[in-house]
Design a protein around this nucleic acid. Sequence first.
DNA 1: AAATGCATGTAACGCGTTACATGATTTT
DNA 2: AAAATCATGTAACGCGTTACATGCATTT
Lengths: 219, 219
Amino acid sequence: MARTNKSKPALLALLSLGPKTGYDIQRDIRRTIGHFWSESYGQIYPALRLIVEEGLATVERQPQDGKPDRKVYAITQQGHAALQAWLHAAPEPPPVRNEMLLKLFVGWQAAPDALMSHLTGLKEHFSSQLVQFGDFERFLKREMRNNPDAMYWLMTVRSGHLYVQARLQWCEEAMSLLKKSMKATKEKKLGTPARTKRMSSLMALAHEVLNPDSLPKQK
Amino acid sequence: MARTNKSKPALLALLSLGPKTGYDIQRDIRRTIGHFWSESYGQIYPALRLIVEEGLATVERQPQDGKPDRKVYAITQQGHAALQAWLHAAPEPPPVRNEMLLKLFVGWQAAPDALMSHLTGLKEHFSSQLVQFGDFERFLKREMRNNPDAMYWLMTVRSGHLYVQARLQWCEEAMSLLKKSMKATKEKKLGTPARTKRMSSLMALAHEVLNPDSLPKQK
DNA sequence: AAATGCATGTAACGCGTTACATGATTTT
DNA sequence: AAAATCATGTAACGCGTTACATGCATTT
């Protein structure tokens, strides 16, 4: 049932920082919260129309020459109220779907080198993110002296920082486990069917051993 | 363009562990990789039909009484080949969308107690997950003595473990930052419009200071 | 010369969940 | 008595991206 709207509150959040066009919103999201949020034009423009229809924002057309008119949206009192209501509602957890982990789960059926190169790619990606989060963090901490509210922004950046740190640590660990596994399997050679069968019984065993229904359904 | 199929390879991965019905697949996903993957029946049954049409699996109907026939799917040689091809392709990173962080980003517009209670809820959730990951990990480490391939499964569990640890650490940090911020704002009182305006100029400043386009587009 | 930025929007498609329909058996 | 498990599937809906259409100005 739930499946609550996410784009609308996101747009209201951005509009709560000042009047903006759809184009501005997209750019500002990318620049400020791009590490944990994104909106495409295909979401933004239709949503803005709805937001105006519901009285949560107003539009003002500003003619330009050579370009399409700017349509500047401004949040209304009702919009502020709607945003606050959303802020006070418990957040839904993000859906979980991680392709790399799925590949690893049946990883013995792949060439170890391929998995290793996937991990290397990930590691490089997270390393560069780590640097950027560090820069961002230093900037915000400096600004907090004048503007205590910068702390809210900082919290989101810290989330990203701790997240990439953990992922990076995992990449390194996984790579070293993979190396070990490569050696172990070279020694005693078993055919894929036999290995598959053993994984299959491991699954059954896991369910018996780990009490009710092992890992969490979600939440 | 890309937008590559994710359900089909997921089903093939599960079928590579042995013949299963659609129902079995759903249950096994929940039990083993539920912490990073999910499939609903609305995905599974149509996808299985396609998989059979493409020759990646075969079906066998097993009549039962009182219940619908079991339709047992078994992966074919072609299916194995398709799975391997997918395993060797670089994984796409999961889309990022975190509602809690979005709420925090404009958090000065909310009642601090509400944010605090969101964080408390998250913290409890991650704490319980942490325990379960620990159990799972101990089990898999024990099993690795007989079955070295259990290491692949372990890698996915370690990912979850490190992830929830990082989230937990973040929750605690965020809660303590929030407490500080509550004190700071009590002292010098500023109206919401003024605070909003300051955040807005902070955004502009951030973009000037942080070189080209700050945080990563994605990847 | 080509790419990027500014600026609007729509149409088509794919992804994914939820609810519904059906119904016996087993557990709480 | 109610709920969960087993077992299949479909229809409707919402979410979200990509590609397209248009076009000038600026930067590389």
